[in-house]
Simulated assay, not measured.
Amino acid sequence: MEEPARFRAFDLSAWPSLIEQGDEAELRQRIYHLFAAFKFEGGNAESLLIYYHSILQTIYSVLHKRGKYVQEVFAETEALEMALIPKTIRQMEEWAVRVTGVVSRYVKTDEDSIVRRVKDYIHAHLDDRIERRELAELVHLNPAYLSRLFKKETGESLTEYILIQKMKLSQQLLRGSSKPISEIAQVAGYSNLSYFSKAFKKMFNVSPMTYRKGSL
């Protein structure tokens, strides 16, 4: 049997990305269009309930991806309100705008916090070999997702950012200390002096020794 026409416009596939991007304006437009079509096509109470559960599932999916629970995002009264099923199209529309907006703003704030935590960890462990996996475990995210998020927020990949910070630290120590270059390499997380020298020269077009001499 062919699916009722009113369900053909029911597509939430783009919503998770819009929520993650914090695009509340586009979300509102999609919600308004969704329920305008629902009303035009004569949706009933049963199909409205399907919409409710589908939107709720989308919210849960976005939060689960980050290891978050509804209780962490919504205050107790908001969580209770969220669980109350709207009875009319207008109520459902207002509910959808409200809950997607709350989650969208939370995700944006959470993403900023995640990037700050990752950066802080990197700066505190420049003398180590920092792996993407351990950074992902730190913030309870999938490594691939963390890489995309970090790139989106900073414009640099995790690998690029870590390397740049290690090299900046090396520059500071070469200029401002009398530590042997081999020791500076270790402070920057390089156990192999030759590898450190190659990485330094690749970034600054000069060897650590030459850089130090030029800074004296």
Rank of each mutant, 00 (worst) to 15 (best):
L135D: 00
L135I: 07
L135P: 00
E137Q: 09
E137V: 08
E137G: 02
L138S: 09
L138G: 03
L138M: 10
L138Q: 01
V139D: 00
V139E: 00
V139I: 06
V139S: 03
H140D: 06
H140P: 00
H140S: 08
H140E: 07
H140C: 05
L141A: 05
L141H: 02
L141S: 07
L141R: 01
L141E: 00
L141Q: 01
N142K: 12
N142Y: 05
P143K: 10
P143Q: 02
A144G: 05
A144L: 09
A144I: 12
A144C: 06
Y145S: 04
Y145M: 03
Y145K: 04
Y145N: 01
L146T: 01
L146Q: 02
L146K: 03
L146C: 02
S147L: 03
R148Q: 08
R148N: 10
R148V: 11
R148P: 02
R148Y: 07
L149M: 05
F150C: 03
F150W: 02
K151M: 05
K151P: 00
K152Q: 10
K152W: 01
K152H: 11
E153D: 08
E153K: 13
E153G: 04
E153H: 14
T154V: 11
T154G: 08
T154S: 12
T154L: 11
G155S: 10
G155A: 12
E156Y: 14
S157G: 09
S157L: 08
S157A: 04
S157V: 01
S157I: 06
S157H: 07
L158W: 04
L158E: 01
L158T: 07
T159R: 07
E160R: 12
E160A: 08
E160D: 14
E160P: 00
E160H: 05
Y161Q: 07
I162M: 11
I162R: 09
I162V: 15
I162H: 15
I162Y: 10
I162N: 11
L163C: 12
L163N: 08
I164L: 12
I164F: 12
I164V: 15
I164G: 02
I164K: 14
Q165S: 13
K166P: 03
K166W: 13
K166A: 14
K166C: 05
M167W: 09
K168M: 13
K168C: 04
K168E: 15
K168L: 15
K168T: 14
K168H: 14
L169T: 15
L169C: 05
L169Y: 10
L169G: 11
L169D: 01
S170H: 05
S170W: 13
S170T: 04
S170V: 10
Q171C: 06
Q171K: 15
Q171E: 11
